[in-house]
């Protein structure tokens, strides 16, 4: 019985969350892609050149180039301006690959950038972060509503905007 047709037992919930079965030419490749597997990766019953499948319900390991990364940034710069995180905190940036795009995001402020490469995503994020930081911290308090003034204090307690170089 091919593994692909034998995976209904793992249930719909898992199947909707994870990938469909993927064909591999070697058993070792299938196992490498499914490090969490707790049951055998089985082959088809075709007599010539068996084909190996990563079963439905097993989270797939993406290629190394698209693995998520987390960085702790001491500064973010763009367009000749730099935000230095000089108050003892760093900015945690996560870069992941989703829906065909690299996405760089921070969970503290909820800013993100995206692009077709990690570099593009990081650059897009940097532009957004520096622009956003500058826009708010350079505004006069009297022009801001109370909640934005509070947010401005949060930003100011986190980093300092400087001209690069």
């Amino acid at each position: 019985m091919p593994a692909v047709t034998d995976m209904g037992r793992f249930g719909d919930r898992r199947e909707s969350l994870w990938t469909d079965s993927v064909r591999f030419d070697r058993k070792s490749e299938a196992r490498a892609a499914c490090p969490g597997i707790h049951y055998p990766v089985t082959s088809t019953t075709q007599s010539v050149s068996p084909v190996w499948y990563a079963p439905i319900g097993v989270p797939m390991t993406p290629p190394a180039a698209t693995m998520p990364e987390t960085h702790h940034l001491p500064r973010v710069s763009h367009g000749g301006r730099v935000v230095e995180f000089d108050r003892g905190l760093s900015l945690q940036l996560r870069i992941s690959f989703e829906d065909g795009l690299f996405i760089a995001s921070d969970s503290r402020f909820g800013l993100y950038g995206s692009g077709k490469s990690r570099e593009q995503a990081f650059d897009d994020f940097s532009e957004f972060f520096v622009e956003f930081f500058a826009e708010i911290t350079s505004s006069k308090d009297k022009d801001l509503p109370p909640s934005t003034r509070e947010f401005k204090k949060t930003l100011a307690a986190f980093g300092t905007l400087r001209t690069d170089g």
Binding site: S114, D124, F128, F132, E135, I136, S139, D143, L144, P145, S147, T148, F151, K152
Partner: peptide, 15 residues
């Protein structure tokens, strides 16, 4: 924007 004030920390960027 609300009541003629810009809430600059409530925003969205569209690529």
């Amino acid at each position: 924007c609300y009541n003629d004030k810009e809430y600059k920390h409530i925003m969205a960027k569209i690529s």
